[in-house]
C-alpha cells in the first residue's frame, strides 16, 4: 500500500504552518522528513495522524482518503505512530502499554469477555518474544514505565505502535534525546522493523547520521513546504538544502 499526500495546507489562525506540502511513500519504503526547526514537520505528521486539522489538500492511503479520520480509525487502517516526547504512564507496565497498542488491532486481540475471564499469559509471552526481545525490553516487561530510562521509554512507545501491526508507521523524532549509540541502534531497529513487518515508514528526525543511514529517501521541508527530495547522497550535496540549514554563504 502507498501513501500519497497532495497539497496539504495547515493554518493556525494567521500562521500557515504547512503550505501545499506533498509527499509520496511507497510500499516498504523508509522516508526521512528533515528540515530546520519550525519547518512544520511534526505539524504535518500530526495532521496525517488525525491530530491536527488541515484546511486544504488530500492524503490517500491504500486508495482511501485519510484526512480527518481519528487516530483510532487510522489504526484500524494500519496507520500507527510514535510520539516525539514520551509521557510516563505511571502505573502501567511495559506489557500494559504494548497490550493497549495491540488493542487497536482487532484481529490480534481477544474480546472483552475473553479478556475478562481468561488468562493473558500466552498473549504476553507472544508479545515478549515478537516485540520486546528485539527492542531489548524483555527484561523490563513487567516493570512500571516510571522505572525505565528515557531511551527505554522511547522503545516502549515504538513497541506499542508496532503491536498494532501497522502497514504505515509515522516516527516522530525516534532518536531525539537518545545517546549517540542508542540512536544508531534505533536506526538499525527501524530498518529491521521494516524488513520484518514489511511496513512503510515516515521518519521525522534531526540527527543526520541516523537519517542518512536509515532512510531510503529524504524529503526536506522548510517554511511548511517541500524544498527538496532525493536519496541521502543527493541531499548531502544539494545547494538549496545547505542554504536552508546553514544560511547564505
Amino acid at each position: 500500500m502507498t501513501l500519497a499526500v497532495r497539497d496539504l495546507t495547515i493554518r493556525f489562525g494567521g500562521v500557515t504552518a504547512v503550505a501545499n506540502m506533498s509527499l509520496d511513500v511507497g510500499a516498504r519504503e523508509i522516508v526521512g522528513l528533515i528540515g530546520p526547526n519550525g519547518a512544520g514537520k511534526t505539524t504535518f505528521i500530526n495532521c496525517i495522524a488525525g491530530v491536527n486539522r488541515s484546511v486544504a489538500g488530500s492524503a490517500v492511503w491504500g486508495g482511501r482518503e485519510i484526512l480527518g479520520l481519528s487516530p483510532a480509525a487510522l489504526l484500524r487502517l494500519g496507520v500507527a505512530r510514535t510520539f516525539q516526547s514520551v509521557v510516563s504512564l505511571h502505573d502501567l507496565t511495559v506489557l500494559d502499554v504494548v497490550k493497549l497498542g495491540a488493542a487497536a488491532h482487532a484481529r490480534r486481540r481477544s474480546g472483552f469477555i475473553a479478556q475478562f475471564f481468561g488468562s493473558e499469559r500466552t498473549f504476553e509471552d507472544e508479545l515478549c518474544e515478537s516485540l520486546l526481545k528485539p527492542l531489548n525490553l524483555a527484561d523490563v516487561a513487567r516493570s512500571p514505565i516510571q522505572t525505565l530510562s528515557y531511551g527505554q521509554r522511547k522503545s516502549v512507545d515504538l513497541a506499542r505502535a508496532l503491536a498494532a501491526e501497522p502497514q504505515m508507521l509515522y516516527l516522530d523524532e525516534p532518536v531525539a534525546g537518545l545517546t549517540y549509540q542508542e540512536g544508531l541502534n534505533m536506526g538499525a531497529v527501524i530498518r529491521s522493523v521494516r524488513d520484518r513487518f514489511g511496513c512503510s515508514v515516515i521518519m521525522v528526525e534531526h540527527k543526520m547520521d541516523v537519517v542518512m543511514a536509515t532512510c531510503d529517501r529524504i524529503t526536506v521541508m522548510a517554511h511548511g513546504s517541500r524544498i527538496f527530495e532525493g536519496t541521502p547522497a543527493e541531499v548531502q550535496t544539494d545547494q538549496e538544502v545547505r542554504r536552508v540549514y546553514l544560511g547564505d554563504a
Binding site: V51, P71, L89, A103, F112
Partner: peptide
Amino acid sequence: TDVGRALLVIRESELVARGMG
C-alpha cells in the same frame, strides 16, 4: 482488560490516550 488499562491512560492524559487510538 483493555478497558481498564485505557482508563489509566485517560487519567494521565486524554491527548495521549486519543493519540494511542
